[in-house]
Nucleic acid binder design. Structure first.
Lengths: 342, 342
DNA sequence: TTGAAAGCGCTAACAC
DNA sequence: GTGTTAGCGCTTTCAA
């Protein structure tokens, strides 16, 4: 039996509305009355029931974040960015983890909306794009990050130019003298996976290097996929001299396969990937990587939601494209002029 | 204007309670009526308002998790464990991140309780233990993980025996021939930090090794602290031959200092720590480490909450102590019979 | 300046 | 089997 508004009203012989007004600072309340009420609240340890407030207010001062994998440090940083802005705006954050499963994503979208969140930051894993349409139309702010939904409808977005970033990293490998480039990417229904592939292939084209489909691998964004694909490739007569992986997990798996084969990085195969965050400083080799501004992605996405909540009529959609950083490291450096024999 | 219960009731000329009953499967509803209602719900895309349900039900089918750092993979795994059990029981999970800040922890506890969560899984960072007392008394399940609150009150708990684990890792270092052991631990108001210190010191005692306070460092559980403390130590004439860090971040910072000084691991200094998870397989050296069963900690904590929710009268508290694993690795192996000269 | 009362959207007695 | 209705705890007109 927790204490509630009417209890403290009764105790002070005032009405619930007076108590409510002093708590919320709305409407006028006599100075003396206010002080008595504030004192009683403090003493009793009264805590307003947010559920009731939310029902009345028709909004929950909270927002949801749906990510594919909470233990991926890219997403962890996104979440921290969202949290910072949310908490500055007095909102809570619901974090949901889909494990890259389309079914879980759909369920969490539903659950969060049933819980009346003010908005959703979502890294979709490429299910049915029509899933979002009715919600977005209904005016709930959906901000997509990382992956874009495959739809013509309009939506808010915070991301980087994946194709361009991919192109730049491929160019770096080519600049290092590589001509036999391989790519391992994720599920092509995820825009990050397909865009990164596109940029990679475009770069080969731009450099007059023939496309080699046998060195384009598609798996899940998990290390097992990277391991499997690379293991298969290394059974062949010829092998690529450089590998670009569309995320860090894929690369770690591939590296495991490379090492098992007794090959050296970067001497035998140079490697590079997206978002290889090394919090430890102990990863060897140090990985050449595109680093997305994860924290900013999260905080900007949350700001969009806050803006839209403040200004509901605002119907325009924001498309924010941030700049990633290319971090060159020993995993792809120092073995120039190799493989010209291609 | 989203669609609601009364809309579909009106449309079908039935009462709201009939619709409610068919949705919830409670009470009896005629087969034909039910089917009509189900069809209308499906067609209209009606989604129940969870806030209203929660208010009525006086419970939100959700639980909160408060952790110190979401980007720490130990906590990420705990969260996944909580989520698994929660979602199996049709509950959502609110994840909150305190960044090791006592103020944020207090705020999140308040916020989550105001939001009527069914229970709380919390890795407290050692603020005022009395904070929890009124809540626990009020019957809300609080399950502590990792850190224990410093109170005589009773509470639920899922953890490992930190002192014992610490003792075992110190013993391992001693078995490797080390006699000059250093420890870097976290804030001593956190029970993990103080217990790990206790076990370490007990082990030295048990082995007849005099305690050396100058090699006990206390910082935050962050890599900056590890770096600073080790940097200071390495300015002295004598240095420890082995280091045990109370968490992985502390160790990574210390290793940075060790390398900057041009020393080798484990030849010059052997190292070991708690919870060095290497998802990449690329950490060098491979770290000797106590590994806590993080996923189990989270899932068991969530199960306790679910049990208590089902059975509110149940007033007994559960204290679950799990067994960690000691992973021996190259960071502490292979340099035996050194430093006997102590 | 204060209070009475009408809901927010839903569930669950209880009555029919 | 179905409907009426009284709340859940709060905010917010509106009247006094």
């Amino acid at each position: 039996m927790t204490i509630q508004l009417k209890d403290i009203a009764k105790q002070l012989n005032v009405s619930v509305s007076t108590v409510s007004k002093t708590i919320n600072g709305t409407g006028r309340v006599g100075k003396e009355t206010r002080e008595r009420i504030l004192a009683a609240i403090k003493e009793s340890g009264y805590q307003p029931n947010e559920v009731a407030r939310s029902l009345k207010r028709k909004s929950t001062r909270s927002l949801g974040v749906i990510v594919a994998d909470i233990s991926n440090s890219f997403y962890a940083k996104v979440i921290k960015g969202v949290e910072k802005v949310a908490s500055a705006n007095d909102h809570n954050v619901f974090v949901c983890n889909t494990d890259e499963k389309i079914g879980k994503e759909e369920e969490y979208v539903r659950v969060l909306l049933q819980n009346q969140v003010s908005g959703l930051v979502i890294a979709t894993v490429g299910g049915d794009p029509n899933l979002f349409q009715p919600y977005i139309k209904s005016g709930i702010p959906f901000v997509f990050i990382d992956n874009l939904p495959d739809t013509d409808d309009n939506f808010d977005l915070v991301t980087i130019d994946n194709a361009k970033a991919s192109h730049s990293i491929a160019q770096h490998l080519i600049d290092q003298g590589h001509r036999k480039l391989a790519l391992i990417t994720g599920p092509l229904n995820q825009s990050t996976a397909s865009e990164r592939k596109k940029g990679f292939q475009k770069c080969l084209e731009d450099n007059g290097i023939p496309l080699q489909d046998e060195w384009i691998g598609v798996g899940e964004f998990k290390s097992e996929s990277g391991y499997q694909i690379m293991t298969e490739w290394l059974k062949r007569d010829e092998r690529p001299s450089a590998l670009f992986a569309a995320n860090d997990f894929l690369l770690y798996g591939a590296i495991k396969a490379i090492y098992e084969k007794g090959l050296k990085i970067p001497e035998d195969i140079a490697v590079a990937c997206f978002d290889a965050h090394d919090e430890t400083g102990l990863l060897r080799p140090r990985i050449t990587s595109i680093i997305q501004p994860a924290f900013e992605i999260g905080s900007i996405a949350a700001e969009i939601i806050m803006r839209k909540e403040r200004n509901k009529e605002r119907k325009l959609f924001e498309k924010i494209v941030l700049e990633p950083t290319l971090l060159m490291n020993e995993s792809s450096l120092g073995v120039v002029d190799k493989d010209e024999s291609f």
